[in-house]
Design a protein around this nucleic acid. Structure first.
Length: 442
RNA sequence: CGGGGCAUAGCGCAGUCUGGUAGCGCAUCUGGUUUGGGACCAGAGGGUCGCAAGUUCAAAUCUUGCUGCCCCGACCA
């Protein structure tokens, strides 16, 4: 991508309305613009990052065995009346009517819709277990949206729904998804802690919030330091793994303010390992059994010919919220360095030459070479002052920069990892380094 | 939803108290000088001062209503 042809409106001044780092940075580097309260446009840079996060989430879902589909944003009130939530969901649900005076709503979640799809199409235990997910925009009419995309009204969410024949099977699905979430957040270079949670309007009797630690978080979290020592990367989707996860996270204490039990905390956690931190909720998983399958009549035949209401769970990840959450967690010493899995570009070429001079030609030669090797590259081909270019790219947070200027010999480039010293390398070595960093295979 | 604040050029703001020709910085455009960490000079374009009504010879400025946005609180993925 040539910067001169891109849409990247970087600002020097931003409104004092933006209170937290992620909101400020996203405005400054032209990732988002507010459209109305709690509703945002995603500009090319922000959208690229959003899509990359979506991709990580999708890949991990697929690996877990969940199957992707897509449900609409607009739903009819009918099924919500069947479940009883049309009345109980309250003001957070955006409702409206079409020209035939039919009551519609912009979906805040999809339990009803998916349960309807299930009941109309699945009749046998042989089709179970089943896990379906989609990544779709949701709308919840927050009383007071704030903190940019962290707490907005329109947001992108991945929601998975599990269907099982028994409570035992359903709980295996629950832990399957818990493992999937741990792997997902690890890919995003985040430490996410599953924490026992209240079930709220979704309902049910087993629920965990996934909290990542960040100073600007809205919820306070009490935890045992040891809970952070868990590496899910090598765990397979097996019952042994589920047991291991369950054991680890029930062994060590973690709770948000609402669920915090001070006496228990003091009792089972040593003074030394007690931590009280701020956190951001980035995911939430629920087991709710037959809460929806009963009122909506989602029934399968069991092996012995009995009718059984399926046991269900639902599992959400705030994909758009994660964009802000990653910034809050990763922003350090005034530097935002994007995790490699979601960086908008693999590498930025800072070309200090003038149009068509030998330096520019060298920079563009490198640009072509990197593209040929399947890297996502952005090249600054503007006539801005060097200092301007340096500042902007430091701000944008692409992990690697290559500086092409008059200081270097013909064959050499300055290679810099954000926040570290530059080193002089030749093109072969450069490509090797990047291939290793991004695990790109030709 | 309760309490408070704001709305002036693309962005950030001053001007409003005390009514009298619309300002500043950044950005943009033109020309020139610069070019290794947010350059400089000269010039230019860009505004029905959120909307509506009222008071007045005269309203960005005073009054009323409306709309939008933000902050604090309670609520929430």
């Amino acid at each position: 991508m040539k910067l001169s042809r891109y849409f990247l409106p970087v600002l020097k001044d931003i409104s004092s309305d933006a209170k937290i780092k992620s909101h400020q940075l996203m405005l400054r580097i032209g990732m988002i613009r507010q459209s109305s309260a709690g509703i945002y446009s995603w500009l090319p840079l922000g959208y690229k990052i959003l899509k990359k996060i979506e991709k990580v989430v999708r890949e991990e879902q697929d690996k877990s065995g969940a199957i992707e589909m897509l449900m609409p944003t607009i739903q009819s009130s009918d099924i919500w009346r069947e479940s009883g939530r049309y009345e109980s969901y309250g003001e957070e649900m955006l409702r409206f009517k079409d020209r035939q005076d039919r009551e519609l709503l912009y979906g805040p979640t999809n339990e009803e819709l998916i349960t309807q799809l299930f009941r109309d199409n699945i009749k046998s235990y042989k089709s179970l277990p089943l896990m379906l997910y989609h990544i779709q925009w949701k709308f919840r009419d927050e009383i007071r949206p704030r903190f940019g995309i962290m707490r907005c009204r329109e947001f992108l969410m991945k929601d998975t729904y599990s269907f099982d024949l028994s409570k035992e099977d359903a709980q295996k699905s629950y832990f399957r998804m818990m493992l999937c979430y741990l792997k997902t957040f690890q890919k995003l270079e985040l430490k996410a802690i599953p924490t026992k949670a209240e079930t709220g309007p979704i309902g049910g009797d087993l629920s965990h919030e996934f909290i990542i630690l960040a100073d600007t978080g809205e919820s306070e979290i009490f935890l045992d330091k040891n809970i952070l020592n868990f590496d899910p990367s090598n765990l397979k989707y097996s019952e042994n793994s589920f047991l291991e996860i369950s054991n680890h996270y029930s062994k060590y204490y973690s709770a948000t303010t609402e669920m915090h039990d001070k006496d228990k905390f003091e009792k089972i956690t040593t003074k030394k390992s007690q931590m009280i931190k701020k956190g951001i909720e980035v995911g939430h998983i629920f087991y709710f059994g037959q809460k929806y399958s009963k009122p909506l009549n989602a029934i399968v035949n069991s092996k012995d010919g009995k009718n059984v209401n399926v046991y269900m769970g639902s599992y959400g990840i705030g994909v758009s919220r994660l964009v802000g959450a990653v910034i809050e967690a990763k922003y350090n010493n005034n530097i935002m360095k994007w995790p490699k899995s979601i960086t908008p570009f693999h590498v930025a070429i800072i070309n200090l030459g003038k149009k068509n001079d030998s330096i520019s030609k060298k920079a563009f030669k490198l640009y072509d070479e990197l593209l040929k090797n399947n890297f996502e590259v952005i090249i600054d081909d503007t006539e801005n002052n060097p200092s301007n270019k340096f500042k902007n790219f430091d701000l944008i947070g692409i992990p690697f920069q290559i500086i092409v200027g008059s200081k270097n010999k013909d064959e050499e480039f300055e290679f810099k990892e954000l926040g570290k010293d530059t080193k002089v390398v030749k093109i072969k070595e450069l490509i090797n380094i990047l291939e290793k960093e991004y695990k790109i295979v030709k």
